[in-house]
């Protein structure tokens, strides 16, 4: 099997050791472009998401693959960065105040990193002011808000109004997602888009960054 195929398989299987080792092999050679490697990473996370949708994978398997992506990127990041001066975009992400769910967020963070984004993960139960400060500090293009529980609507509204007050709202596009949310709620709280899973998050981010 070709090196990139084995790499992709290790990511889908969630074998972090193998993904890291093969990532090292890829970085040691010069055969592959950054775009090609990122396409493999992204396709692997896409397949993991598809397996979850069909009931073949569950949350522990998604987390296992997300960990494999992180292990691979740890090795590959300098190699990719040498080749690509620009990232796909700069993202700040976190779970909003009043919510400590981190599984969905962690998976999305890994999928975005796999797709070439620079992601700043602020963790869970994040106050609105912390989002604003980090957006300003890193010059984020996108803010991704994870909100799992139904009680988080006010927290989403608070983030939007805090960014407006700080004069940052026009500089950053906001995407919200999570089990308790919907496109209607996204419109209601004033964010730019809703994304419900890995695939739609990647598509929405690409679109907001001006891609096709």
């Amino acid at each position: 099997m070709e090196l990139l195929d084995r790499f992709r398989q290790a990511l889908v299987d969630g074998d972090a050791d193998e993904a890291g080792r093969l990532g090292g092999e890829i970085a040691a050679g010069t055969a592959y472009s950054a775009d090609r490697i990122l396409a493999v990473l992204s396709a692997a996370m896409g397949e993991v998401g598809a397996r979850y949708e069909t009931g073949e994978y569950f949350i522990p398997e998604m987390l296992r693959s997300a960990a494999a992506v992180e292990a691979a990127l740890q090795v590959l990041d300098p190699y990719l960065f040498r080749q690509r001066q620009e990232k796909a975009g700069v993202v700040v992400m976190g779970t909003v105040r009043g919510d400590v769910h981190n599984i969905g967020k962690n998976i999305i963070v890994s999928a975005l990193r796999a797709a070439g984004y620079k992601v700043y993960d602020l963790g869970v139960n994040v106050p609105a002011a912390k989002f604003a400060a980090r957006i300003e500090e890193v010059g984020a293009d996108l803010l991704l808000l994870s909100a799992f529980t139904t009680s988080t609507k006010q927290a989403l509204i608070d983030v939007v109004s805090t960014l407006e007050e700080a004069g940052l709202r026009g500089r950053v596009k906001i995407v919200s997602g999570g089990a308790a949310h919907s496109p209607e709620l996204a419109r209601e709280v004033g964010v730019d888009a809703f994304a419900g899973d890995v695939k739609s998050t990647l598509a929405v981010c690409r679109e907001l960054m001006g891609g096709s």
């Binding site: 969630g14 522990p60 981190n102």
Partner: peptide
């Protein structure tokens, strides 16, 4: 343990 770490432990 925290749900994400707990689930990750199933394999790790």
């Amino acid at each position: 343990r925290g749900l994400a770490d707990f689930f990750a432990d199933f394999y790790r």
